[in-house]
């Protein structure tokens, strides 16, 4: 669009002597290619660190590939084996289960906290910054501390539970208890982050909407559901998609919770897809099969993001 206005004078110059002057050709090239040049760094980096690994992994996944040995082409053999692999489905069940258990309360809490922080309260900036502290803490540190909190014999959580007169829980032994422990870790880290994003979006909502709603007699609760939430729709969508991408790749928290092992409990109670991928590729040396898991995960994330997109769109309509 902008180019046309710049190019015209040079077109006039062409008419004068029938040849395109060197300077104007340079200008034209500049106008035409400069934008590409400026956005190139991202695409170059993406090609090297994003696209190439993606394609290479796809190529590896078509092979029976021993990590430090032979590789032979097997076509889609790894994928057919994968879809019949009960361990993969177990890992997928865990991943999705922990994802739902973590993300739903996380976004609801973030919404509530953002709403609170959006009011005129004392020390607002302090609290707004404070919610982000868990997020800037190293994930390994979080994992170690929470692993201790949820230890069976020496954990603080069990200490409180028995103090209340209930039976201590072997957090790693049961599927439900391990999922809860991991979901708590995830929420500890990510609730504040989502709070800030939602808060930013809330502040962008024009104040006069609320004023006129008040004049019409709308209560704060009604204003929240009728004005705030619908207008947050694009931002909610963003947080849901980002949480989906992160949640399906859940790795560090369950690994540290399981004492650094990839098994995810004695019966794979909390082995996620990424843990299964790591175990296969780097502990069993089945690099090709591991690559197939990686690609299956990629496909799943795309599907889940699309489903979320549809759901959130419909719900917020």
């Amino acid at each position: 669009m902008t180019s046309s206005s710049v190019v015209r004078p040079s077109a006039a110059a062409t008419a004068a002597d029938g040849r395109v002057p060197w300077r104007s050709r340079l200008t034209r090239a500049d106008v035409r290619f400069a934008p590409y040049f400026f956005i190139a760094p991202f695409f170059v980096l993406f090609a090297v660190f994003g696209a190439f690994p993606l394609i290479y992994t796809g190529w590896v996944s078509l092979h029976d590939w021993h990590l430090i040995g032979e590789h032979t082409f097997v076509g889609f053999g790894n994928y057919t084996a994968l879809f019949a692999d009960p361990d993969f489905w177990n890992a997928l069940k865990n991943t999705v289960g922990i994802f739902v258990l973590a993300t739903v309360p996380q976004l609801l809490m973030a919404l509530a906290m953002a709403n609170l922080l959006n009011r005129k309260i004392r020390g607002r900036t302090f609290f707004r910054m404070g919610v982000l502290i868990p997020n800037v803490t190293s994930v390994a540190a979080v994992g170690i501390v929470f692993g201790q909190l949820f230890a069976r014999d020496v954990g603080l959580v069990n200490f409180l539970i028995t103090w209340l007169g209930l039976d201590a829980v072997d957090w790693q032994a049961n599927t439900w208890s391990s999922w809860i422990a991991i979901a708590v870790m995830v929420d500890w880290r990510w609730t504040g982050y989502n709070t800030l994003i939602l808060l930013g979006a809330m502040q962008a909502i024009p104040k006069d909407l609320f004023e006129s709603a008040s004049l019409d007699g709308a209560k704060p609760w009604q204003q929240f559901w009728r004005i705030t939430v619908p207008l947050l729709r694009p931002t909610l969508l963003f947080t849901v998609v980002i949480s989906t991408i992160g949640g399906l790749q859940l790795f560090t928290e369950p690994v540290i919770f399981g004492n650094g092992r990839m098994l995810g409990g004695t019966l794979g109670q909390f082995q996620t897809v990424t843990m299964y991928m790591y175990e296969t590729a780097f502990q069993r040396f089945q690099y090709g099969y591991g690559a197939a898991i990686a690609w299956a995960l990629f496909g799943l994330i795309v599907i889940f993001s699309l489903i979320n997109l549809l759901l959130v769109r419909r719900a917020a309509r």
Partner: peptide, 17 residues
């Protein structure tokens, strides 16, 4: 019944579990 290499195991040496 304390899994080796777990937090409970490490603490168990100290606590005489």
């Amino acid at each position: 019944k304390i899994p080796t290499w777990s937090k409970d195991w490490e603490a168990g040496f100290k606590n005489g579990s």
